[in-house]
């Protein structure tokens, strides 16, 4: 029995004509994509109302595989572009999928300000501890001591705790999972899509081709097994307490889930007031 790929159960959600995707063997980004698409399917989400935006880098290619309105911006500007979309048409659900370098180095300013405004947007960040697309350079989440192409003697810079940064900047929903926690990740994505406000999901993803190789972490399977060993689920703790030390301990879970007035709603409210007044 041979089945045409057009009958793939996720065909309606994926641009199957673009698969196989560009990601390396064992890369965690394909898992993140599955999880996102599974969440859409579980929610029976109206694809006419979805806009997926990404920046530059390996994760930046994610938007190109999703069969909704989608846009691949310049490096670091995914959240800024997405803010324009959401404010211009508040009926749309805007999801940003991008990497740690794109969102937190070159795009860091837009991240903290979008979180501060509490604009309705789900940001999913694949954190693989380095710049994969450009060949494995030091990134804002590279752990102390890790070797990369641009930290050949070991990294001496303190890394960001992304979930903590999101929470401290004002995000109303924050969770962290690894690509191994694929069912829990899917559930968090569903929550993030439904949540009104700025939601952030950090996904620890193995990059065996560059980060894994320079740090002798083995192949993707070894890195996934390592994540299995070291990850600890702690729901509800404030993410500044959620350790993220690859090789030692990575705390995952649903960290923040609070309510705050949402930005695009407030914009619409005073537009209504001004137009009637």
């Amino acid at each position: 029995m041979t089945r045409a790929i057009e009958e793939h159960p996720l065909t309606g959600y994926l641009r199957i004509d673009r698969v196989p995707h560009i990601w390396c063997e064992g890369c965690g980004l394909g898992i993140l994509l599955n999880s996102f698409v599974q969440a859409l399917k579980d929610l029976e989400f109206d694809m006419d109302k979805l806009v997926v935006v990404s920046g530059i880098g390996c994760t930046g290619r994610a938007s190109g595989y999703i069969k909704s309105d989608a846009y691949h911006t310049t490096h670091g500007r995914a959240i800024a572009f997405a803010t324009g979309v959401k404010v211009a048409n508040p009926d749309l659900k805007v999801v940003v999928i991008s990497g740690d370098g794109d969102l937190f180095a070159i795009g860091g300013n837009h991240f903290i300000h979008a979180a501060r405004r509490n604009i309705d947007m789900l940001v999913i960040c694949a954190n693989n501890f380095n710049y994969g697309m450009t060949g494995g350079q030091l990134g804002p989440t590279t752990p102390i001591g890790s070797r990369t192409q641009t930290s050949p003697y070991g990294n001496i810079e303190q890394p960001f705790n992304l979930s903590a940064l999101a929470a401290c900047s004002g995000a109303v929903y924050v969770s962290r999972w690894t690509t191994l926690h694929v069912r829990r990740l899917t559930e968090s994505i569903k929550k993030g899509i439904h949540k009104k406000g700025f939601s952030f999901i950090e996904v620890i993803a193995p990059c065996s081709t560059v980060y894994g190789r320079y740090n002798r972490l083995g192949d993707g399977l070894d890195m996934m097994n390592d994540l299995k060993e070291i990850s600890v689920i702690k729901h509800g703790i404030y993410p500044t307490e959620a350790t993220i030390e690859p090789g030692k301990e990575i705390v995952v879970g649903d960290f923040v889930d609070i309510e705050k007035p949402e930005y695009s709603d407030m914009v619409q409210a005073f537009i209504k007031e001004q137009m009637e007044g």
Partner: peptide, 28 residues
């Protein structure tokens, strides 16, 4: 707001221009 439009003050001009492109794609 008086004419049904939205104003947003951005964190920098990099973002402002990106948002303008986003709003344009959203049909405005």
């Amino acid at each position: 707001p008086q004419v049904g439009g939205a104003f947003i003050q951005f964190e920098d001009e990099l973002g402002a221009m990106a948002a303008v492109v986003g709003a344009s794609y959203a049909g405005k």
